[in-house]
Design a protein around this nucleic acid. Structure first.
Lengths: 223, 223, 223, 223
DNA sequence: AATGAATGAGTCTTCATTCAT
DNA sequence: AATGAATGAAGACTCATTCAT
């Protein structure tokens, strides 16, 4: 805003590989979005957060929009990887794997006030940005496809008759909606309530008697 | 000051009473947000949409932010009114009333690409705007409180044991999430699928055999 | 606000009612200048001070600049009248009359924080406004001419040899300078110190031993 | 953001170090005030005078007001320095030093139509600006304190009994008033008459027989 | 590679003026 | 006569981008 003042002499950084610099800037962009909001972010705020000079963005990105897009990509990729890992570490039972996917969605680093807020900002802007729309669509389609497979197998195993596509949609959008609520009003919607609601939905589908022990380990591994 | 000389001017709009003009501007703001996105909206775009000169905003609002806030208030109020009306016109059965509330949430004028997109923008920004946070919280709290009452009564009537608060939260955030999905990617998440998923969740709770006939009339009056 | 362009004195249409309204607005303008400063004054602030609607200025004045000029004229005329009256009521002795002129310059309604501040604003702006330059020049020329006559006669009477024109200039600009100081920093330069300094200068010229009794009556007739 | 497309640009000024640019802008601001008046100055007029683009002010100053304040500070500091130098170069006699201070006050670069006009604008605005009030007060307090010391010593040396504080106030405000007069109406109040009046006042105090030879050299080096 | 000075388009806001009622 | 709605020009400020060093 104002205060082009004190640009404190900072120690000159050691020149590094481009990829590392790029990543520094992406992380700074994420931090800056979290602090100020997607559209209040400025090149200056990002560079200040990274400890770099203003002009550096032009060396590594097409411009501000490009950097912001990369930041979004970073977040979505990280989201996908984390979910995948969680599912694979969850054991063979498809229902366990389903719950593990949900648990991962409500655990750090995915479910953090900052990350959730950024994600929501990103989803909200998708309507007016083809690039964001495409990323958004792909992420959720993959997510729902994975869920669908798990749901199908779990339904088979537990002898339940389900519309897997619809259930996957419901889970994905319930997660999305709980994220929005948590982002906007974390007082009313705590992380715990959000997670519980989502698990409860799945439990309801499979007639499970609150199998909370199944997820306890993962819930507590917060950072 | 400096010589505000005579100049050619466009035909002056006939002055109307204040309240009417205020509403004109609010509607124009809503239209402009829908077209450009919450943060790409400019005073110029709003005034152009309304057919007024730039300076008029200063007469009726504190400034751009104030107008935008009023636009949000307008939308939320309209949302509350519509839901209330729908519930009251739905007959005595609490489960019918619950489904009516959901139906109204997925019907125009609430569920319109423009309205949904604005709502989502608004929710996404709430985190960085105390004024928006307050509005957001209040709207959903009221909404969930209404749902809770309906759920309690419906559970009584149908002999089901439910955590009303959790179910209300699930419904509200499922709606929110479906709106986000519809806003960002209306191709993957159609209005019909969104509505169906939400009704299906409620049906699942009450063990209903897809009582779709109950809502058929309203579902098809979409725009 | 530049462009204090030459504006022919237009004849007033409704002399009586109009004159009253005109005066109301002039007084409001003076009050508004005093409160906000010459250039922070707006048409709105003046009309608010007068309790009138915004558009009324156009009925009685050419515009804002015209009104402001009239306000300045009002103040300068009032200044001249007051000095003249004070001198004429001071008795026959020219030195008494000289002191009386000074006393009047440091007494209300001339010497008031508001009036002084306006006067100084006006003087400061004169350089860039031919209309103000003209008023300013005329006022002080008349004032100095009057002083000169008094000084000449007083010098005769008291057998002192003086450059009347230079003394008149010194008195007038000492008053002006004391007003500036009082306007900008009334803490350092009180009204009393200002008046005393000016009388002391005249006393010094005529070798008077602090003839303070001579002016006591006038000093205390403040409003 | 949004499409800051490539555009034709004027030849870019070669970047210089910050302090130099700051000074360029301050000088341009002074020139612009002198030309247009304190409140008719715009960011555009300043930048045009400096030959820079509009946005540069934001790099070196908080904004327009900050720059204007710096311009005032520059002028007042320069005023103080010049007076101090003049006094110290004036020889040992305190009365000579007193006259030297006055002479410096009526000589360039202090006493220039532009500088005087700016100074007067600044004094006139002080009433409504705490920052200006503070600067104004400090400058004149220092000035009067210096004068007081000189007056005391000169009175000792010449065996005259004087109220040093009052005389200092009189001199300072006489100078101020002569500046105002010169600014507003340089035709009636020439630089020479102004200076002569001020010296004559001091001469009168010490009973000097118009010791004009003492100052003749300096008087004639006018611009 | 990195810096930060410089640019200039875009936006919001203010406000004197106009004018229909 | 009086009102206040409406206008539109002017100005300050922001900020992404460019580019010489």
């Amino acid at each position: 805003m104002t205060a082009q003042a004190k640009r404190a002499r900072r120690p000159r950084k050691e020149p590094r590989i481009g990829a590392e610099r790029r990543n520094d800037l992406i992380q700074a962009a994420i931090a800056s979005i979290a602090e100020l909001g997607y559209d209040a972010v400025t090149v200056a705020s990002i560079c200040d957060a990274a400890g770099f000079s203003r002009g550096l963005i032009g060396h590594y990105f097409e411009g501000k929009d490009d950097l912001l897009l990369e930041a979004v990509r970073y977040i979505t990729q990280s989201l996908g990887t984390i979910t995948r890992d969680a599912v694979e570490n969850a054991g063979p039972d498809p229902l366990d794997r389903l719950h593990a996917a949900i648990t991962a969605s409500f655990a750090p680093p995915t479910f953090t006030p900052e990350r959730v807020a950024i994600w929501v900002s990103f989803a909200a802007r998708a309507r007016w940005s083809p690039a964001l729309t495409q990323i958004y669509r792909e992420v959720w389609r993959n997510y729902r496809a994975s869920l669908s497979r798990l749901i199908d197998r779990a339904a088979d195993r537990h002898g339940v008759n389900l519309d897997a596509a619809q259930v996957a949609l419901t889970i994905s959008q319930l997660i999305e909606g709980l994220q929005v609520g948590y982002s906007a009003d974390p007082v009313s919607i705590s992380r715990e309530r959000a997670e519980a609601a989502c698990h409860a939905y799945v439990d309801g589908l499979f007639g499970a008697p609150t199998p909370s022990t199944r997820r306890q380990a993962q819930v507590t591994r917060d950072a």
